[in-house]
Design a protein around this nucleic acid. Structure first.
Length: 548
DNA sequence: GATTTCACGTA
DNA sequence: CGTACGTGAAATCC
C-alpha cells in the first residue's frame, strides 16, 4: 500500500496496485490509514518515497508500524547519502545512474510538453517529474504513489539477495519514520534551568549587539588578565594562543584541550583558557541564539534527524542534540506529570563484533555483564589493557599500550580478528564492504598509501559501527511499538542510548518494555546467536541523573 | 559570498 | 599515525 502526500495542498492518496484506496484531505486519509492499521493483526507495509513526505499525516495523529521507505532502502542498496528519486529509480531498475537525464535547471531549456510522462521511453525517470509542481492534482499523486510501489518491489528483489537485507530495510524505514516523530515531539526542556546554565557560561541574555560584545569581552578578560603582556591576544585564533602560551613560558605546539590539560597546574593562564573554552563552546554553540532557534514555546528542543549518515549508517541529529555538553543535560527534564526512561547499551561494539564475526570465544565473553573484565581474564592482562586492546582492534590502532595485548587477542579471538582484518583489507584496496544488515559502504579509490590505510581503518570500524547502528535501530523500533500503549515516546536516540518520555504512572512499565525490547530485538537481529546484550535502564527526572 | 580548516562537543 | 557526526569562528578562495 503506497502513500503519497501533497503537503502544499494538504492532500493525500492511498494506492494499492491499480486501486485508489483513499484520496482526499489529510485528516480524511489519516483516518483511513488508522482504520487499515488497526483492522488486522498483520498491519499493512506502507510504502512511500521518503518518510518526511508523510509528516502531515503523522501530525494528524496517525500511528504506523510497518513501512518501506524507498529512500532508505536505496541508501542500503547503494550506500552514501545521495538519494534523489531519479537516482533511486535508476538503481532500482538496474539502469546506469551516470547516464540518467540531467535535472531541470529552471531555465529556458526546460521545455516539456504539458503532460509529460513521469517515466521516459528509455526507462529513466523524467526530469519533469522531479519538479514539485509536477505533483499537483490527485492523478499525479496516484501516479507518484504507484512509482514508489514499483521502485519498492524492485528494491525488495535486490535486497533479498543480501543476507538480512529485507529486515534491515524494514528497520531503516521504521527509523526514518521515528526521525519524523523525533522532530515532531522534541526533547522536553526545563527552560529556567537551561537559561541558568547558559547565563553561567555566556552571561545574561543580550538585548543588543553591544550587550553581547560586553559579555564576550568579560569572558576573554578572565584569561587575558592572567597573561601579562599578551592582553590583546585573540583567544579564538590558535596561532595567537600559541604565541601567548609561549610568552608566559608554556612550551606547547598544539593548543587543543586534550594536549593542554596536563599544563593546567603549570600556569594559571592554561587553567583559565581551558575553562574559557568550555564557556565559549556554550556561549557560541549552545547559547542564547541556540535556545531561541531550537527550543519552542512548548519547551521542546527540536532538531533535524536522519535515519542514517553517509558512512556506516548511524542516526544523525541537528541542533546539537547529539553533542549537548554534559552539564547542559541537567536542563533536559521530563514535563510535569512525566518521567524519563534512560537506557544505554553496555559495551555494544564488542558484543556486536561477536555476532557479526561469529567468534565463539568473544561470544562467550559477552555472557558477562562486564565484557572487558572477561576479556582481561582470558588475555591475562588488566581490565584497562583489555579494553584498550579491544577498542584498538576495532579502530585499527596499531601503536600505544595495546600493541602487546593485540597479539594475545589474535590467539583468543581469531575469528573476530580475521573479520576485522578482512574489512580493513577491503577498504585499503578500495573495495566496498557490506554491513551485517546488508548496507553497502562504498570506498573511494585512493592511491596514496596513507590514504589507503585510512580507508582501511574506516571500513574496519564501519562494519562494527554500522552493525551496532542496525541493532540499535531494531531495538529502538521494538521499544517504540511496546511503548505506544503506555503513551511513552522516544525523544532521543544517541547511538547506543535511548531516552523515553512517559507519563509517571507508566514509567515502571516503560522501563520494563525497553528491557524486553532489547532482548527481543537482539534475538531477532542476531538470529539467535549466543551473544548477550545488556542495557543500563533507569527512571529519572533529568537526563543528568543517568550517569554514575 | 561560498568553501575549507580548525577546534571541540558527543558516541 | 583510532572511528564517526554536527556546529561555529576564522581563514581562505574566489
Amino acid at each position: 500500500m503506497a502513500v503519497a502526500v501533497d503537503s502544499a495542498q494538504q492532500h493525500a492518496v492511498l494506492v494499492r496496485d491499480t486501486v485508489v484506496v483513499a484520496a482526499g484531505g489529510i485528516t480524511q486519509v489519516a483516518e483511513a490509514m488508522q482504520r487499515l492499521e488497526q483492522a488486522v493483526d498483520d498491519p499493512p507495509r506502507w510504502v512511500w518515497w521518503k518518510a518526511t513526505d508523510i509528516r502531515p499525516l503523522r501530525e494528524a495523529g496517525v500511528w504506523l508500524r510497518r513501512s518501506w521507505d524507498v529512500r532508505e532502502a536505496h541508501r542500503l542498496i547503494a550506500g552514501g547519502l545521495h538519494a534523489e528519486p531519479d537516482l533511486i529509480w535508476a538503481i532500482a531498475h538496474g539502469l546506469d545512474p551516470t547516464t540518467r537525464p540531467a535535472r531541470r535547471t529552471g531555465d529556458l531549456f526546460d521545455l516539456d510538453d504539458d503532460d509529460p510522462a513521469p517515466v521516459r521511453s528509455d526507462g529513466y525517470l523524467a526530469p519533469a517529474a522531479l519538479d514539485p509542481e509536477w505533483l499537483r492534482g490527485e492523478d499525479r499523486l496516484c501516479t507518484w504513489a504507484r512509482l514508489a510501489l514499483e521502485a519498492a518491489a524492485l528494491q525488495q528483489g535486490l535486497l533479498q539477495a543480501r543476507p538480512h537485507g529485507l529486515p534491515t530495510a524494514a528497520a531503516e524505514s521504521g527509523a526514518a519514520l521515528l526521525c519524523v516523530e523525533l522532530e515532531q515531539h522534541g526533547l522536553p526542556i526545563d527552560r529556567r534551568r537551561m537559561e541558568q546554565l547558559i547565563e553561567a557560561a555566556a552571561g545574561p541574555r543580550p538585548l543588543t549587539d553591544a550587550d553581547a560584545a560586553t559579555s564576550r569581552a568579560a569572558r576573554d578578560a578572565s584569561v587575558l588578565q592572567r597573561a601579562p603582556g599578551f592582553e590583546r591576544t585573540d583567544l579564538r585564533n590558535p596561532a595567537e594562543v600559541k604565541r601567548m602560551l609561549h610568552g608566559v613560558g608554556v612550551r606547547v605546539d598544539d593548543t587543543r584541550a586534550h594536549h593542554l590539560e596536563p599544563y593546567r597546574r603549570t600556569h594559571p593562564v592554561v587553567d583559565a583558557l581551558l575553562d574559557w573554552r568550555k564557556a565559549e563552546r556554550i556561549a557560541t554553540t549552545y547559547g542564547w541564539s541556540w535556545l531561541e532557534r531550537h527550543v519552542g514555546a512548548d519547551d521542546r528542543l527540536r532538531g533535524s534527524w536522519t535515519a542514517c549518515d553517509g558512512g556506516a549508517g548511524r542516526m544523525t541529529a541537528g541542533a546539537g542534540l547529539h553533542s549537548l555538553p554534559t552539564p547542559m543535560r541537567d536542563a533536559v527534564a521530563a514535563a510535569p506529570g512525566h518521567l524519563l526512561v534512560r537506557a544505554d547499551l553496555g559495551q555494544v561494539e564488542p558484543r556486536v563484533l561477536a555476532v557479526v564475526s561469529g567468534d565463539q570465544g568473544l561470544a562467550r565473553a559477552t555472557i558477562a555483564d562486564d565484557l572487558y573484565a572477561e576479556v582481561a581474564q582470558q588475555l591475562s592482562v588488566d581490565r584497562q589493557t583489555a579494553k584498550i586492546a579491544v577498542l584498538a582492534a576495532m579502530y585499527g590502532q596499531t601503536t600505544g599500550p595495546a600493541a602487546g595485548a593485540l597479539e594475545r587477542m589474535e590467539r583468543s579471538y581469531p575469528a573476530a580478528m580475521q573479520f576485522l582484518r578482512d574489512a580493513a583489507a577491503s577498504g585499503e584496496r578500495g573495495s566496498a564492504v557490506t554491513t551485517y544488515g546488508g548496507r553497502l559502504i562504498p570506498v573511494s579509490p585512493a592511491t596514496e598509501p596513507a590514504a589507503q590505510r585510512a580507508q582501511g581503518r574506516f571500513t574496519r570500524n564501519a562494519v562494527v559501527q554500522g552493525a551496532a547502528a542496525e541493532l540499535f535501530k531494531a531495538w529502538a523500533l521494538t521499544a517504540r511499538d511496546a511503548l505506544h500503549p503506555l503513551d511513552g515516546l522516544i525523544v532521543l536516540c544517541l547511538h547506543d542510548e535511548l531516552l523515553v518520555h512517559v507519563p509517571r504512572a507508566h514509567a515502571d512499565a516503560a522501563a520494563h518494555a525497553v528491557h524486553e525490547a532489547l532482548q527481543a530485538a537482539a534475538h531477532h537481529w542476531s538470529e539467535g546467536a549466543p551473544v548477550r546484550f545488556v542495557a543500563d535502564i533507569r527512571i529519572i527526572e533529568r537526563w543528568s541523573q543517568a550517569k554514575d
